[in-house]
């Protein structure tokens, strides 16, 4: 067992425990109906969380994702619902705007040495403000394209529905894993998070990579906004307030080190599904208020940050490396 897999293992154990517990109380958790709904309901913020995973692995943070999701929803609703644009061109325009928005934050961070926290905080206010300026009221979208997308489902034998949105989520997940582990960009992100100075000396193009990381995060947040707009069929400037914090929590619970350098896209996915499972359980149970989800997030976050601290300390590492290092060193010497 390599020590870097331990947080990921913990994430999976927590998920399995939560899911089995929910299943023991409600047997419907064994059906594809719940699985399909979990994927559909958590797709939009799950997609944003995958983008955030790259940001946090690189040692940064992106606070703007909730606002970007809201702005995207309002923009799409306004253009499609009121101005009669076609959905596809609208999406393309919106994704382009989103990508530039993220790239700009990345440039501020790299070229002007503005801390990511501040650069993306101004992004948070900017995008949210733009959303309110476009419209303060909820706008409905009535478009045949939206109707046909909502009919695009695969129905399991037990009437479980695998929606287009769920498919988009899984697609982003697979691409995310691929990019993180099998492209030079992905490995450069890990390198920058592990030791930024060394990454530069090793020839990592840190400027370009930083810009790409924040562009990717905003691109995925925009995509998340489109996904949300598809399932809600409306746009509202007040949604997803504070969502960036849930997203960050999911990334950390997914085993990504807040200090950067270590993390897994699949871990973020499992964490999103864990929180989704708890949410669904609370809804089905009905005796507890749904706000308990916040308490659970708090407890899990606390536990995982504690675990990270332990693992990053020398003693912690020794604890988990089972005393093999010294022996190997002696053999090789």
């Amino acid at each position: 067992m390599k020590s870097r897999f331990i947080p990921l293992l913990m994430t999976f154990i927590v998920f399995a425990a939560m899911y089995l517990f929910a299943y023991s109380r409600f047997s419907s958790f064994g059906s594809m109906r719940i699985v399909g709904n979990l994927l559909r309901d958590n797709a939009y913020w799950g997609i944003a969380a995958i983008g955030m995973t790259f940001v946090i692995i690189s040692g940064g943070i992106d606070l703007s994702v909730g606002s970007v999701i809201a702005f995207t929803g309002v923009f799409c609703a306004l253009m499609i619902g009121r101005n009669g644009w076609d959905p596809i061109p609208t999406f393309i325009v919106m994704l382009t705007i989103g990508t530039f928005f993220g790239a700009t934050m990345g440039m501020l961070i790299h070229y002007f040495k503005i801390p990511p926290f501040i650069a993306t905080l101004s992004g948070l206010f900017l995008a949210r403000g733009m959303a309110y300026v476009l419209s303060t009221e909820s706008i409905r979208i009535d478009h045949p394209f939206y109707e046909s997308v909502s009919k695009l489902v695969y129905i399991f034998p037990d009437k479980g529905r695998f929606t287009f949105v769920a498919g988009a989520f899984l697609l982003v997940l697979f691409i995310g894993i691929f990019v993180a582990h099998f492209t030079r960009f992905g490995r450069n992100v890990y390198a920058m998070g592990g030791n930024p100075d060394a990454a530069l000396l090793l020839g990592v193009p840190t400027g370009r990579t930083t810009v790409m990381i924040y562009a990717l995060s905003s691109f995925l947040a925009t995509f998340a906004g489109i996904v949300l707009s598809l399932s809600k069929q409306s746009g509202d400037s007040t949604i997803a307030v504070g969502l960036e914090l849930d997203v960050i929590a999911a990334v950390v619970i997914g085993g990504t080190l807040l200090t950067g350098g270590v993390g897994y896209v699949i871990g973020t996915f499992i964490a999103v599904m864990t929180l989704g499972t708890i949410q669904t359980y609370l809804t089905l149970d009905g005796s507890l208020t749904p706000w308990w989800i916040k308490i659970v997030i708090g407890v899990l976050l606390f536990g995982f940050v504690g675990l990270q601290k332990l693992l990053s300390s020398r003693q912690g590492l020794r604890l988990f490396s089972f005393g093999r290092d010294r022996k190997e060193l002696q053999q090789s010497a």
């Binding site: 582990h181 099998f182 490995r187 890990y190 592990g194 030791n195 060394a198 080190l257």
Partner: peptide, 27 residues
């Protein structure tokens, strides 16, 4: 040591010039 402590030994040696196959890193 100016390397990346959180990456594997192999990745540290080949960072930025990993052998590729079919457009992906051949780990």
């Amino acid at each position: 040591v100016n390397l990346i402590p959180t990456l594997s030994v192999a990745e540290n040696i080949f960072l930025g010039r990993q052998p590729m196959r079919w457009g992906m890193i051949n780990m």
